[in-house]
Design a protein around this nucleic acid. Structure first.
Length: 543
RNA sequence: GCGCCUGUAGCUCAGUUGGAUAGAGCGACAGAUUCCGAAUCUGUAGGUCAGAGGUUCGAGCCCUCUCAGGCGCACCA
């Protein structure tokens, strides 16, 4: 029988739960955790300490009771023992891990995929950069985060739609159009500058040149924004990120009348009032610190109401989970968005906003000054040119999204041990090199659990366990929207492999051992490749 | 003034949703290769988890307050 981590844990948890229920656990649930100290065993449950209060007995007494009553599958559990102050530690049968490896090898590229989130239909909106200029560093971070999160969720069986909201309406669109025309006039020799709060820079003149060369010129603003979105698409493509849908604010919210309908809906719900010629929404009744304008005194809808319409539309499209990744300058927007959705009766608990915090570009200990004039790494393309896709994607998901990130370009560029992405890729390349040698000598990896019995060293078991637990890491980091957990996992796995490799010979061990160790290495390679794939980072065969 | 994020080793950061003796990488120092890739491995040093209270069997994690840094608080988007 092939074991996977989920059935293993379900089985052990179930046994404990049965025993706990018979003692009167009520609603206390059995959980398993990995002890930090590996000498404590493979899994542990702290349930006795939770039961102690309810049952008014000492935790250790409950542990004894539980051990008596728990009917563990001897095919799975080698040993269960009490440990102060009230843990039960489990040691898993080695054969379980052997069959886990067999499972890994047979699933290959699919290993890690699971159906834990198969009921989720999720919309993930990210990047959504204003179509007024090239993508910047924070967009690059959001793109790496969003795509990795989507990959993780999909690997757990969720149905994920990646969406990019295009802010192509309102004052911004008008200003952009005027800026483009001003750029065109400059190209014609006039001294016209962009309007106040408009856009300038070399890219506007590039755009102007293309525009002037057109035979029939469409309206400048929308044409230009469309061009810039094409740039964004291209940058994102070379970054390995693609979207199911680019959602145009103008075409899908304004032109369709959705914004107007949303305003009517709010009015009918008694959620608005007029003041100083503008229409306000009463979000302060729903948790927001202050009310907001939704129709300006010039009669134009404000950005906020379009965004409300957009989020209503998301839920109407049948997603049971709606997640946005926003930039750090939008965190103040979260509360009012949630308030508005709450006011309209949307399931706010199914709506989450992640903030991709700011990025400080560093060159060693020097902070890179972000100056468009000096042309210093302000765009995502420039960063990619400098450090490459692998390092960029890896560095952006290496840390949790809401920590401010110091991105050291000097380190990311280095192909040395200072650069963490190489440590992991090197492990993969090393294994590939082993496999190439085997091909020459005709040595074949073993495939069946029974052939792995020579894997007995602690270093082997560290790897066997880590490999087997991989699908659970996929689920957990996906559910938490935290791809950095997978990075941590990868670093540990690669580390365990390097230690194993330094300590044990593989190819020139006795043949049976050699074949088993080769299988172990192949398992590590499989997981490294799959996990790096989820992060959008390549797993090179040679470096 | 109000709100959000952050504060853990010299530096950059983890800490598996409250569990056992706080971890990793880099940097520093000392070592390891006649042998499968040394982009590796082994060891040493390095901590008042910003501070003070509280909650409980148990707190880096939860609550309150204080301090420090960052970012928001437009009829811009």
């Amino acid at each position: 029988m092939n074991h996977d981590i989920f059935t293993l844990q379900r089985s052990v948890c179930g046994s404990i739960q049965e025993a706990a229920d018979s003692l009167g656990a009520g609603d206390i649930k059995a959980t398993l955790e990995r002890p930090k100290d590996k000498s404590h065993g493979d899994f542990a449950t702290p349930i006795a300490m939770l039961l102690a209060k309810k049952l008014k007995t000492s935790p250790m007494a409950i542990v004894q009771d539980l051990l008596q009553k728990t009917r563990l599958d001897p095919g799975l559990i080698l040993k269960a023992e009490a440990a102060a102050p009230g843990f039960i530690n489990f040691k898993i049968q080695p054969t379980v891990y052997y069959s886990g490896l067999e499972n890994t090898l047979s699933q290959e590229k699919l290993f890690g995929s699971n159906d834990q989130l198969k009921n989720q239909k999720l919309l993930l909106e990210f990047v959504s950069a204003n179509p007024t200029g090239p993508l910047n560093i924070v967009s690059a971070r959001a793109a790496a985060l969003g795509d990795s999160i989507a990959n993780l969720l999909e690997a757990s069986g969720a149905d994920v739609s990646r969406e990019y909201y295009v802010n192509d309406a309102g004052v911004q669109a008008r200003l952009f159009g005027e800026s483009l025309l001003a750029a065109c006039e400059r190209l014609g020799g006039k001294n016209t500058s962009a309007p106040e709060n408009g856009y300038q820079g070399a890219y506007m003149e590039d755009l102007g040149r293309t525009y002037l060369a057109l035979a029939n010129r469409p309206e400048a603003g929308f044409w230009g924004m469309d061009q810039i979105i094409q740039w964004h698409k291209k940058s994102l493509e070379s970054y390995g990120v693609s979207f199911n849908k680019y959602f145009s604010e103008k075409k899908e919210l304004h032109d369709t009348g959705l914004v107007r309908q949303t305003i009517e809906l709010l009015k009918k719900g008694g959620l608005t009032y007029e003041q100083e010629g503008a229409l306000w929404i009463k979000v302060s009744n729903f948790g927001s610190p202050k009310d907001e304008v939704i129709v300006k005194s010039d009669g134009q809808p404000a950005y906020f109401v379009a965004d409300i319409a957009y989020h209503l539309n998301k839920f109407k499209r049948g997603f049971n989970r709606v997640v946005d990744i926003w930039g750090p300058d939008h965190h103040g927007h979260i509360l009012r968005m949630k308030s508005a959705l709450r006011a309209l009766g949307c399931p706010v608990d199914d709506f989450a906003v992640l903030i991709a915090q700011q990025v400080n570009l560093m060159e060693g200990s020097e902070k890179v000054k972000m100056s468009k004039r000096e042309g210093k790494f302000v765009t995502m393309d420039e960063l990619l040119e400098q450090v490459g896709r692998d390092a960029a994607r890896f560095f952006f998901v290496m840390r949790s999204a809401n920590s401010h990130l110091d991105f050291d370009i000097a380190v990311a560029k280095k192909q040395t041990d200072e650069n963490p992405v190489f440590y992991i890729q090197y492990a993969h390349a090393r294994i590939c090199s082993l496999l190439r040698r085997c091909e020459e000598s005709g040595l074949r990896p073993a495939r069946k659990a029974a052939e792995f019995v020579s894997l007995v060293e602690p270093e082997s078991f560290l790897l066997l366990k880590e490999i087997m637990e991989y699908p659970q890491w996929v689920v957990e980091s996906g559910k938490a929207y935290e791809p950095h957990r997978i990075v941590a996992y990868l670093q540990a796995l690669a580390g365990y492999f390097h230690v194993f490799y330094a300590k044990h010979r593989i190819l020139d061990a006795p043949q049976e051992t050699a074949r088993a160790r080769l299988s172990l290495a192949l398992g590590v390679k499989t997981v490294l490749g799959n996990a790096l794939g989820l992060l959008g980072v390549s797993a090179p065969e040679k470096m």
